[in-house]
Nucleic acid binder design. Structure first.
Lengths: 219, 219
DNA sequence: TAGAAAATCAGTATAAATACGGATAGATTT
DNA sequence: AAATCTATCCGTATTTATACTGATTTTCTA
């Protein structure tokens, strides 16, 4: 199937410039063809759902509004396993990489890598192989397997903790968060303590940076 | 001079993919030619300093390591005023736009704008005109003129305040910051209060987000 | 040179976050 | 069945941050 007609690609990125850049980059490569594009995870998923057989490769950013790249990857991989997913990320952090692996991404590259590596990644996943940016290889061969709980995400942070973290980043106090989630302020404090540990932060400030770096929240 | 030989461009961006994307986008436009590239502000400046006449347009990202895009813009504009500067930004905030204007940028566009707008911006600055992304036009025609103090940056934040902010984002307490800057903790608290006002934040969390959004710190 | 703004410092008070040291119930894994 | 992990809760104490109302010096600029 790689011989005559080009491999069709769907790009999901909230930065139009990245999309246009990639399209231009690929315009000279007749092996690939960018069929459609989306600016958030949900639209990307909808586009695929409308005609799943149309796409062979999904090229997605990590941090996008409405639905993140990793969530999109998970959903696509579970419903349309024939689609290869290449994740593009701004940051090179253990947590995000692990999340991408757990989402069963086929390739993961950083946005600060060049055209060559990008094309290599595309070639590899077209051959049913995988490609992970060189910088993150050490991370992969660690014990990510044992953390394969569906309810554990970036850096061992639970869904509940993530929920609390999102509200913290929204400048809410423990008191306010407690009310919003119908739990005690003490419980929120405990979550905070665990978040501080898991993110190796000294204070809430570190927490905010952690959340942003790991794409757990929208800036 | 626009007639025969292409207009030479220098790109500064710490994301190689953006550089390659832009290069691909411009490869079909024979009017422009990307001569060189840099991954941070300092290298970009060095490259220009080595041969200032070689470049007609500087295309730079806002947030870059070592030297930011706006700083780069200021330095280039003061030493080599013949070079037109187009600033590429991730975020569309009043503060950043104002900073870009004060840095005398010729064009300012967002990374989520498409190829067309990008080319329009290039054409405009080639004709000694300016181009500012449509979304930010209202901001421009406000009283940015009266804030034209060289020591005032993003959102009316002074250099000292910016200094304090940078340390806050590094998870330092007021006490620690006071020691580091050889001032009283009370002074640091005052700076904090002013920063909270100017960034419209309820707490330090908002301050951190503000700093990141406006490229005042490296994440 | 008068006025504005920045940078410095102070007191007092409250609110919020962090650090301890616990505890319990439920789910999952080994 | 035992161990582990999550999510929930409590008390006490300390540290940090924020709010409010001041003030002084310097620096720049209109």
């Amino acid at each position: 199937m790689e011989t005559d007609q080009p491999i069709s690609i769907l790009i999901a990125d909230d930065h139009q410039m990245i999309i246009d850049g990639i399209k231009s980059m690929l315009s000279s490569e007749k092996k690939y063809h960018v069929m459609d594009e989306a600016n958030d995870g949900q639209s990307a998923f909808d586009i695929i759902a409308r005609n799943p057989e149309k796409y062979q490769i999904l090229l997605t950013d990590i941090s996008m509004p409405i639905m993140s790249g990793t969530e999109l990857c998970k959903k696509v991989k579970s419903k349309y396993p024939h689609i290869k997913v290449l994740i593009l990320s701004m940051y090179n952090s253990t947590a995000v990489v692990k999340e991408a692996i757990l989402a069963e991404a086929d390739a993961y590259i950083l946005k600060n890598t060049g055209k060559d590596e990008f094309l290599t990644a595309l070639h590899r996943i077209s051959e049913n192989s995988t490609y992970f940016s060189q910088d993150i290889l050490p991370i992969i061969y660690q014990q990510y397997q044992k953390e394969k709980h569906s309810d554990i995400i970036a850096g061992g942070i639970s869904v509940r903790e993530k929920e609390v973290l999102a509200l913290i980043v929204k400048e809410m106090t423990s008191e306010e968060i407690a009310q919003k989630l119908f739990i005690s302020k003490k419980t929120v404090d405990t979550h905070r303590a665990h978040l501080l540990e898991k993110s190796n932060s000294k204070s809430t400030i570190g927490l905010v940076k952690f959340a942003i770096k790991n794409g757990l929240v929208e800036l």
